[in-house]
Amino acid sequence: MKQMRIGRRRAQETPASRGFVVRFREQKAPMVALFYLVILVAAAILAGPLSPAEPTAQNLELVMADPSLAHPLGTDQLGRDVLSRMLHAAQLSLMAGAIAVSLGLVVGVPIGLLAGYAGGRTDRLVMFVTDTMMGFPPILLAIGVVAALGPSITNAMIAVGIIFIPRTVRVTRGAALAIRNETYLEASRSIGTPTGRILRTHVLPNVLPPVIVQATLMIGFAMLSEASLSFLGLGAQPPEASWGSMLASASRDLDRQPLLMIWPGLAIAVTVLALNVLGDGLRDSFGREVRRG
């Protein structure tokens, strides 16, 4: 009888009632993407112990050497171990993505919450500024900001973070607009709950799922932007190494050693793909059972 009751209960369950974790674990591709990203983050954190050599140590007798036991991914134009530089570059590339997305979220989420919840003139003013910012080509806006602040990986990611602000505002505003007239919000307003508390306890939990998905996708875009700016010499500066700066230096010797360009290019492509797949998985896993206070 007990097994029959369990079977009936499982048969009556809907995808929305089974929980986010269960829904996410049922998706193979996002699980593989998450596993890869966890390994990547762990490798970046442990870059020092995992590196077979110092990333800046030069050996001019082994310039652009092919992969070997001593140098699994070969050496670059100055005889530096490519694997060591790839591991340390992962730290910089991941940190760059985190800086840019954090700036976009910290500034964009509160503005989007206020615009979506308040509506009226506040919403129109915020959307006017947002649409104006989104009217500029992203890479040109980033180049302009970096030119004003000076070339560095931090300034490059501040520029990319500024690009993310209007996109975060739009996503947050849209989610807030969808629930601003819900009954539980009207009940909270009717009993005199302060607006700040309503935003924190009722609106914010409801807008977090789309914002989290958007943040996952933005990390991938931030890494591509960092690679583009570093390729142009506006991102990571020597002796710092990012995947983008490694691509830039390798492009000058593509005919002599194409592997130097393949490794960072492959790392960027696979990581961005994993982030996009993870974002799709998160989007499909968030259910409608959002907390209502």
Rank of each mutant, 00 (worst) to 15 (best):
L266F: 15
A57G: 06
R256L: 13
Q77L: 02
G135S: 08
P72A: 11
A147S: 05
A227S: 09
P166I: 04
R8M: 15
G233R: 07
T172I: 08
A89F: 06
E26P: 02
H88M: 13
A250S: 15
R9A: 15
A250F: 11
A250H: 01
S68F: 00
A176W: 04
G7N: 14
A269V: 05
G108F: 04
G97I: 05
P151W: 03
I158K: 02
S190Q: 12
L78M: 09
S188D: 05
M157S: 00
A65D: 10
P138C: 08
I158S: 00
P67E: 03
M31H: 07
L105Y: 06
V160S: 00
L185Q: 02
F164I: 05
M223N: 07
L114I: 05
E186I: 11
S245V: 07
G233D: 13
G192C: 07
S102Y: 02
T271K: 08
G196M: 08
R197K: 08
A70I: 00
Q257T: 14
D131I: 13
V160P: 00
A53Y: 06
A187W: 09
N206A: 13
D255K: 14
T130A: 04
L69T: 09
V38Q: 12
F221H: 00
G74C: 03
I198P: 00
V63D: 12
P151R: 06
L204W: 03
Q77T: 01
P209E: 15
Q3M: 15
E182W: 06
A11V: 13
A222M: 12
A250G: 14
T56M: 07
G281S: 11
G116K: 10
Q3L: 15
V101T: 15
I219P: 00
M4H: 15
A148N: 01
F221Y: 03
V203T: 08
Y36G: 05
V38C: 14
V63H: 02
A148Y: 02
A156F: 04
M86K: 00
D284F: 11
R23N: 14
L60N: 11
G265T: 05
D76C: 01
F231D: 00
A175F: 03
L92E: 09
T154D: 10
I99A: 07
A90M: 10
T172N: 03
I139D: 00
K2H: 14
P239T: 09
G19M: 08
S188Y: 01
G233W: 08
L259C: 11
M64S: 13
L92M: 13
F35V: 15
D255W: 14
P30E: 04
M157C: 03
N59H: 11
G279W: 04
